[in-house]
Amino acid sequence: MAGCAPQQKAVTSTLSSPMSLEKALVEPAQVEEAIGLEKQLNSRTDEAIPSGENWFKVLPGTIPVIITAPHATRPWREGKRRFSDGGGTASLAVLLHELTGATVIYTTYEGPSDPNYYDDNAFKEQLAQLIALNKPRMVLDIHGSHAYRSYDVDVGTMNGESLQGEDKLLSDLIQRLHQDGIFSLSGNRFPAAKNATITRFSHQHGVPAIQLEINSTYVMPSSGNLEAQRFSRLAQALARYIQDISH
């Protein structure tokens, strides 16, 4: 037993070292703002696009990363409205813009197309312009996934192809998610390899891209304290990841 004491002391010392901790990034007020946007977008079911307004919004950034949330409102696919991933996906993208300076594009009303299924729409035209203008380090595409899914986040990379040989983009993402307590990860359950996905579109434009299918319990901050805290942790992990790769 005596031989165990030095080892235990060393572990305690490491865990208590202030150098091993990072200061929290997300404030309650920011989550409250995110909840407000989530509720606003969720309330726009069957609401017509106001005259003179677009069905998506762009937040110009200051770093070479683009974040998309194409299903924050219900898209139009194959002649009918498809379900939305929830306004919380846009809330997450907007908060990441505030925390990092990344460029963001997200839907604000139910549009005439599906930006993650078709290429011939104004959303994709705008994304192409942003790619040409910003020459981004990567595109991060945010989606919501069913709460019953066994993962916290499924990472879609077209089975590795969309990383364009930059595998560190994936390993760094996994590391950051783990550091903020998000451990249940899946790879390419939804690979973004079929149809005209944003990940495929970005890859075709020469930009590494990752699709994130996020369990809805992480992108519904209005649902309760637990969901709001999960949202906060995920935003923090992704913000730190974006800051890391943009340097």
Rank of each mutant, 00 (worst) to 15 (best):
V65C: 01
I63R: 05
K80L: 05
E38Y: 03
G36A: 15
R77H: 03
A72D: 04
G52C: 06
F56V: 13
L41D: 11
P70Q: 10
E38S: 09
S51I: 12
G61C: 02
G52W: 02
G79A: 10
K39Y: 00
G86L: 08
T62A: 12
G36C: 14
R44E: 07
G86V: 06
P60A: 11
N42Q: 05
K57L: 11
G52S: 05
Q40W: 00
T73R: 13
W76Y: 13
T62G: 06
L59Q: 09
S43E: 15
R44S: 13
T45N: 07
A48V: 15
A72H: 09
E53T: 00
V65A: 03
G36K: 15
P70F: 05
A34K: 00
E53N: 00
K80A: 09
P60Y: 01
I67T: 12
G79I: 06
P70E: 10
L37T: 14
W55Q: 09
I67G: 05
E78F: 09
T73N: 13
G79D: 07
S51N: 12
A72P: 04
E32K: 00
N42H: 01
A69P: 13
I35P: 03
D85L: 02
I67N: 07
D85K: 01
A48D: 15
L37F: 11
P50Y: 01
I63C: 10
L41T: 11
N42R: 03
G52F: 03
R81Y: 00
R44G: 12
V31M: 01
H71I: 11
Q40D: 15
R74A: 07
K39G: 04
K80E: 13
G52E: 08
G79R: 07
A34M: 03
E47G: 03
I67P: 05
A34D: 05
L41H: 10
L37N: 14
P70H: 06
E32I: 00
P64A: 04
S51H: 13
N42Y: 00
P70L: 12
E47R: 14
H71L: 13
R44W: 09
E47M: 12
V31C: 01
S43V: 08
V58N: 06
P70I: 11
W76G: 08
L59F: 01
T45S: 01
L41Q: 07
N54D: 14
G79E: 06
R77W: 00
K80T: 12
G36Q: 15
K39E: 14
S43G: 14
T68M: 13
S51K: 15
A48P: 12
E47Q: 14
L41S: 11
N54R: 12
S51P: 07
T45W: 01
S51D: 14
A34Q: 03
V31Q: 01
G87E: 10
R44D: 10
I67R: 07
P75D: 12
G52V: 03
K57Y: 02
K80F: 04
E33C: 07
A48L: 15
I67E: 09
T73H: 06
A72C: 12
